[in-house]
């Protein structure tokens, strides 16, 4: 559960919109870097690795609702910037197949992009320190650490969504209470599903109790979510770590030149695409 399987209309608009804006800026930078280094080489590589991740993600392990992500492998093959583009493409295609909301594509791209970048950095550092022969344990540990970080990001996003609707949304100041209040909180697309209440119950309550209960409900919802994610998550992390270690071990053995964007661990091997002709 390293990325958000949250449908549209659950997270508050300011949160998913912020995700889209941040993702757009970062993808713009990544695209610029990819174009400068040669889009003819980048386009098929991103396409192939994104497709590989999509194939892995479409094979689900039903009892724990987990699917292998191969994001750390994608990071090792693509590097952080091309990896970010691949992350965006993967979540966009998944959203178009109904897997995750369209509105959360930005946030998902950031979470998976972080997973790819962090995985790349940890495996690269680990292999430089321990050597290519120990890529299996390095990859396993890096995957667990990466997934732990991105799962915490996911919990953080849900916590932000469940937090009270205040200044973070619009910055509107209520002069009576000197508190920031959201003038669009009753608006069409401010759903507040993570606000800690079933709407039917909320209507019957007194205003003062309402505020207190809302806080309590939010805390409960987020802590329960965190408890479920941190209970089921490690099973997935372990599976992902085993798969990543085995696959990277296999690639490190048969085609080490493909690792780290074809630059090799020491940067001595030619880039992917140069192997059969060096153009």
């Amino acid at each position: 559960m390293s990325h958000i399987h949250i449908p549209d209309g659950v997270l508050p608009w300011w949160l998913w919109l912020s995700g889209w804006i941040a993702a757009t800026v970062l993808i713009g930078i990544a695209a610029d870097r990819a174009t400068r280094s040669g889009s003819r080489r980048a386009v098929p590589l991103i396409g192939a690795v994104s497709a590989l991740v999509l194939v892995a993600m479409s094979s689900e392990i039903v009892p724990i609702a987990y699917h292998v992500n191969l994001t750390v492998i994608a990071g090792v093959l693509l590097g952080p910037w091309l990896g970010l583009i691949a992350a965006f493409i993967v979540v966009l295609v998944l959203a178009l197949l109904g897997h995750g909301g369209v509105t959360v594509v930005g946030l998902n791209a950031l979470v998976i992009g972080t997973e790819i970048a962090l995985g790349w950095a940890l495996v690269r550092t680990g292999v430089r320190l321990a050597g290519l022969k120990r890529i299996r344990p390095v990859a396993a540990v890096s995957t667990v650490l990466t997934l732990a970080v991105t799962t915490t990001m996911l919990v953080g996003i849900v916590a932000l969504a469940g937090a009270p609707a205040t200044g973070r949304e619009t910055g509107a100041l209520d002069a009576e209470t000197l508190e920031f209040r959201n003038p669009l909180s009753g608006g069409l697309f401010s759903i507040g599903l993570l606000g800690g209440h079933d709407h039917e119950h909320a209507e019957d309550e007194h205003e003062g109790e309402h505020a207190e209960d809302e806080h309590e409900g939010e805390t409960l919802a987020v802590s329960r979510f965190a408890a479920v994610v941190y209970t089921l998550g490690p099973i997935g992390w372990l599976l992902e770590a085993l798969v990543t270690a085995a696959v990277l071990g296999y690639v490190g053995k048969v085609r080490p030149g493909l690792l780290f964007g074809g630059q090799g661990v020491q940067g001595r091997v030619g880039r992917i695409g140069d192997e059969h002709g060096g153009r």
């Binding site: 386009v43 991103i46 994104s50 497709a51 590989l52």
Partner: peptide, 21 residues
């Protein structure tokens, strides 16, 4: 609406997806 390299990679991904699947 996306940068050229992203739009092209998107098309390439979908093509590769069926081959790899």
């Amino acid at each position: 609406v996306t940068p050229q390299v992203v739009g092209d990679a998107l098309l390439m991904t979908y093509r590769s997806l069926f081959i790899l699947a």
